[in-house]
Design a protein around this nucleic acid. Structure first.
Length: 434
DNA sequence: TCTGGGGTCCTAGGACCC
DNA sequence: TCTGGGGTCCTAGGACCC
């Protein structure tokens, strides 16, 4: 048995939490750069504002209907997420944090829950809401896919009061018959279309398919979904593993048209990626540098550029990685393009103590252990200081590589015109009750 | 004018091995 | 005339997730 706990309109709920005046008002939260709508309160959904719609298309509509609009405040959302997750950890011994606003609980070997699933589900919902102020939906089922389905029902049907337990077979069949196959975990837009071509439109029609047939047409992933719908568990609780791929990228608020600006942006991303790498105590062998203009333009041809660098010895040293990024950019840079987005991707990632040294490395790194130790120590000091003097995720670090440039002077830095205060992570933003 | 930023897994095909 | 059978590793691309 699995439970899926999912926060309702998470980002929008976080914004409402410290603004009681917004309690029954429509609220939307925008993506980075104030680009798209990525979260909507129930009231905003009711107004028909679509998920993922570019903000400029609904800006006037929002004004007309008094919709409260916010830029993404990740410092706030990350902290609230942490509170929700630690509350869940106090309610169940086995928790898998699946995303910023969702977690699976494994209930099968937890008698407290198994005795009465319905009561347990209600208790979880009530306690999370009481401790954090964030409303959640609870779905419980025999497999992860069924728990997801249950969660969907808990949100869609008011009769469930936010808690749905799938135990009764007749009930499960009925729910599957009235649920669109596209709602299922693992069925995206493409698969929905292809399933429809085969005459499969409801979850029930997929559930009664021969799993082997589904495998032939769609591969092993959807076959597992099919089995999971029938109560055969194929997906278990997963441990947190170090990332196998690390990306730092962002679009610019204004287009970039000169190499120097692009280089600063790329160096910033290389530096960010390097520090992410060190947080999980890894090193990487490959770095891909990429940049592109807008794919939405009618007048410009979409022109992505990219190039890769292989490190002779896997590294997590900011200085080495920034130098590599500059070199790659020099090779791939094309003039006359209005760059809209750029970034760096790291791969070939392994733990720092599992590094295979290069026999032909001439830098002397591997011959002189002291040098390598010094490099690691330098990075550790840098991380320590940046952590200590950290202000905001998006502000400049206390220590940084000069080729990243000065953030305050960069006109292409992210737009966040509608940012709310960091109520829970910055002392001066603390709410004052008078 | 203006369109996010991360990730995962699987498959097919080519190069190469014995 | 006739040219095996069984593997691994890597990469690119396609699907999905939030």
């Amino acid at each position: 048995m699995y439970a899926l706990i999912d926060c309702n309109s998470f980002y929008a709920s976080c914004e409402k939490l410290f603004r009681p005046d917004l309690k029954h008002k429509p609220v939307v939260v925008l993506s980075n750069n104030d680009g798209c709508v990525v979260a909507r309160s129930a009231e905003a959904k009711a107004l028909g504002i679509r998920m993922g719609v570019p903000f400029f298309q609904v800006k006037d509509f929002c004004k007309q209907h008094n919709v409260e609009v916010f830029s993404s405040n990740y410092a706030l959302y990350a902290d609230m997420s942490h509170r929700v997750m630690s509350t869940l950890e106090s309610l169940c011994p086995t928790v898998e944090v699946y995303s910023i606003d969702e977690a699976f609980l494994y209930l099968a070997d937890y008698p407290v829950a198994m005795q009465n699933l319905e009561a347990y589900g209600k208790k979880v919902k009530q306690i999370v809401e009481m401790y954090t102020g964030i409303a959640v939906g609870v779905g419980i089922g025999k497999t992860k896919t069924l728990a997801k389905l249950a969660n969907h029902a808990a949100k869609k049907y008011p009769g469930t009061r936010g808690v749905c337990v799938l135990e009764n077979d007749r009930w499960i069949r009925r729910l599957m018959q009235i649920t669109d196959v596209g709602e299922i975990w693992g069925v995206g837009r493409r698969y929905k279309k292809r399933l429809s071509d085969l005459g499969i439109d409801t979850v029930y029609q997929l559930a009664i398919c021969e799993p082997g047939k589904i495998r032939q047409h769609f591969g092993v992933v959807l076959e597992r979904t099919c089995l999971e719908l029938n109560g055969q568990s194929c997906l278990g609780i997963e441990q947190v593993e170090p990332k196998q791929q690390i990306i730092s990228s962002r679009s610019f608020s204004n287009r970039i048209t000169c190499q120097q600006d692009l280089e600063q942006a790329i160096c910033g991303h290389a530096s960010k990626a390097a520090s992410k790498l060190r947080v999980q105590q890894s090193v990487c062998s490959f770095m891909t540098v990429f940049a592109k203009n807008s794919p939405f333009s009618d007048t410009e041809r979409y022109t992505p550029i990219s190039g890769q660098y292989q490190f002779t010895t896997p590294t997590a040293d900011t200085r080495v990685m920034v130098a590599a990024a500059r070199e790659v950019l020099n090779h791939i840079y094309k003039q006359g393009i209005r760059y809209a987005k750029a970034g760096v991707m790291l791969s070939g990632i392994c733990q720092h103590d599992e590094v295979q040294l290069d026999l032909f490395d001439v830098t002397g790194q591997d011959k002189d252990c002291h040098l390598e130790e010094k490099q690691t120590a330098l990075m550790a000091v840098m991380d320590e200081l940046n952590k200590k003097f950290k202000q905001d995720h998006y502000q400049q670090n206390a220590l940084f590589i000069a080729s990243e440039g000065i953030k305050k002077e960069q006109t292409w830095q992210m737009n966040r015109k509608l940012l709310s205060p960091c109520y829970t992570t910055r002392l001066k933003d603390l709410v004052v009750v008078k």
